[in-house]
């Protein structure tokens, strides 16, 4: 954003290894640096997220992948300590521009968190939560949207007879799909998934992964995971981050089978301490 660089950020490193087919990009990150107080978390990171694809961010714990994800819908705004530099463009528009409403941005860029976080209300009310925020929607329209969202999240058949039951009565995997349905109901263009299956059992994990693959026909998905098999299974592109820098970014097949850099290879083959 600003022309002068904040001294807290390390000087820009030599460019990361980027092998990115110039598809239509949905999100574009330009020189993003971010620090929690005096602790830098991301350093001069640039990458483009292609539209209607699944992009995975992988990397060791503390590499900044979750920080990057949360920057994409401005969840860092809550934390007064966070210092940011650089731009993030959504469909060519800077998401930090003063005319952008944060609430509107977050409706366009939905987010699913690591632990399922349904609200303490009924299943129906959870899915309708975002709709109700948007003001007057007829009950019929709302019912339709709730059903559509639950179907899209592959949860409708399991809950259609108990929509008024508490969301907390669902299993962990169902709760996570409910959270996805809740996010879909708002009609986002981008869906950010922060280790969405790390708290789930293997079968629920598979369901979530299948769901991710199905959703990419209409949505741009960004997935943070430290399960490399998962990244390999569901994503089209993978970005490997380490120490707050982007190390390598390219099509998933290439990155996993033929990484360009030694660091990437060490990580994906598990040789990194």
């Amino acid at each position: 954003m600003s022309a002068t660089r904040d001294p807290r950020f390390a000087p820009r490193l030599a460019g990361a290894c980027i092998d990115f087919a110039p598809e239509a990009s949905c999100l574009e990150i330009q020189g993003l640096s971010l620090a929690y107080g005096d602790t830098p978390a991301l350093e001069a990171l640039s990458l483009r997220v292609p539209r209607h694809r699944v992009t995975a961010f992988i990397g060791p714990s503390g590499c900044g992948k979750s920080t990057l994800l949360r920057a994409l819908n401005r969840l860092h705004d809550l934390n007064e300590e966070v210092v940011r530099e650089g731009r993030i463009l959504l469909d060519g528009q800077d998401i930090h521009a003063p005319e952008v409403s944060v609430a509107e941005l977050r409706r366009r860029v939905g987010m699913v968190f690591q632990a399922p976080n349904p609200f303490p209300m009924s299943i129906y009310d959870n899915v309708a939560f975002g709709l109700r925020l948007q003001g007057r929607v007829s009950k019929r329209k709302r019912d339709d949207t709730v059903e559509w969202a639950l179907r899209s999240a592959a949860l409708w058949h399991e809950v259609k007879d108990r929509l008024q039951a508490s969301a907390w009565s669902l299993s962990g995997g169902q709760q996570q799909r409910l959270v996805i349905a809740r996010t879909l109901a708002v009609g986002p263009e981008v869906l950010l998934l922060d280790e969405p299956a790390s708290a789930l059992d293997p079968i629920s994990t598979l369901k979530i992964e299948e769901l991710i693959r199905n959703l990419k026909s209409t949505l741009t998905l960004v997935l943070v995971t430290h399960n490399m098999q998962q990244a390999a299974r569901v994503s089209d592109y993978t970005a490997f981050l380490q120490g707050g820098e982007l190390v390598e970014y390219g099509p998933t097949d290439t990155l996993f089978t033929n990484p360009r850099l030694r660091r990437t290879e060490n990580y994906i083959t598990g040789r990194m301490a």
Binding site: N73, L78, A103, R106, F113, F119, L133
Partner: peptide, 15 residues
């Protein structure tokens, strides 16, 4: 109340 609840609401476009 876990922060995830707050973030969940904000992520849906709540003020």
């Amino acid at each position: 109340i876990p922060d995830q609840q707050r973030e969940g609401a904000l992520a849906l476009g709540a003020t």
